[in-house]
């Protein structure tokens, strides 16, 4: 039962929201428009630090900070898109991954400590957000037998509402002429151009919208943890988001959300199972072979193997369309 409860909690956990938001952004960019943004974590960093710096360093309000973070994401998208979107797809990929790392390293340098907190990061900036909570922050709640504090519940409510609204937006976009142009660009941008579509501008829009959603993800995550730490914005985060997207299925509104939830539930289940197997009086696997640290690593190996199996048997992901994938093979 405990395994099940842990899994349920992981399905809705703040990490699931975080990666769902990053992956929704990537879905617009990669799933619909075919843009390879390998630096989504950089956008997330800006969303998080936008709030942290505005509140902690400059004494501004939380909401102003949120706006600053999102505006910074727009600027980053413009800076990355202007020079690269006219070029082949790989240039954007390289520029984004480099920019994200530069941001992380820039924010953690000692000379930036006064503003960004350096390697220590910044804490205590999300008070204004929690003041709005209708749930008493320390009260304990037990929906479905899972324990949440009022504070967690408030964050999850807001986070999942945000995710739901964005899924709705992506669903509307995907069925609209705007979404149709993005898909055409993904398929063959010269064809779109020959039919009078301003491909460059559409790509820019997709990059900006996806990046801003990534920044929202960063803002939610920072608000949840009440702290920012530069070394949580590693390139690997972007790749987890891609894993979530591909697991769920690209170019499907719900794909990234279900993918993110499942990814974290899977990580949680494998973690619980491995821990069960290695503890107790007579463990199935001796803890000499698999210690606590190794478990954390092993579950990623297992989930990775699962993803590989998924790609072999269901390359379109959970929601993707088999027909679309098989057209590729021709």
């Amino acid at each position: 039962m405990e395994i099940l409860q842990n899994a349920l909690k992981a399905l809705v956990a703040r990490e699931a929201i975080y990666f769902a938001l990053l992956a929704i952004g990537l879905n617009i960019q990669f799933g619909y428009a075919g843009l390879l943004n390998f630096g989504q974590v950089g956008f997330s960093l800006l969303g998080a630090y936008g709030i942290a710096i505005t509140v902690t360093t400059w004494g501004g309000s939380y909401w102003l900070g949120l706006g600053v973070g999102l505006a910074a994401a727009v600027v980053l998208a413009l800076l990355l898109g202007l020079p690269t979107l006219r070029l082949r797809a790989d240039y954007l990929a390289i520029a984004t991954i480099a920019a994200a790392e530069m941001l992380r390293l820039g924010f953690r340098t000692p000379s930036a400590t006064e503003i960004t907190g350096g390697t220590q990061g910044l804490q205590g900036f999300s008070g204004e957000f929690y003041e709005l909570s209708p749930f008493p922050l320390d009260k304990k709640y037990h929906p479905f037998g899972i324990l949440f504090t009022g504070q967690e519940l408030w964050l999850l409510t807001v986070g999942w509402t945000l995710v739901a609204l964005l899924v709705l937006a992506v669903w509307l976009w995907g069925r609209s002429p705007w979404g149709r142009v993005l898909k055409a660009i993904r398929e063959d941008e010269d064809a779109a151009r020959a039919l009078g579509k301003n491909v460059y501008w559409y790509k820019m829009q997709a990059l900006i919208v996806g990046g801003v959603i990534g920044a929202l993800g960063g803002a939610v995550q920072a608000t949840a943890t009440r702290s920012v730490d530069p070394d949580t914005y590693l390139p690997i985060v972007t790749f987890y988001a891609y894993a979530a997207l591909i697991l769920g299925g690209t170019a499907r509104p719900l794909g990234p959300v279900i993918g993110a939830s499942l990814l974290f539930a899977l990580l949680s289940v494998t973690d619980s199972v491995l821990r069960d197997l290695t503890t107790g009086d007579n463990p199935v696997i001796s803890s000499d072979i698999l210690d606590s640290q190794a478990i954390a690593a092993t579950r990623f190996v297992l989930v990775g193997a699962g993803l590989i199996a998924l790609m072999a048997f269901r390359p379109q992901g959970i929601f993707g369309s088999r027909t679309e994938v098989s057209i590729d093979a021709k």
Binding site: A184, D188, E324, I327, D328, K330
Partner: peptide, 21 residues
Amino acid sequence: YRVARAGMVRTFQLTKALSKM
């Protein structure tokens, strides 16, 4: 794209059907 909007439309020697649409 402006050439196309102005009324000069072209097709390609290698057909560009948008396969997944």
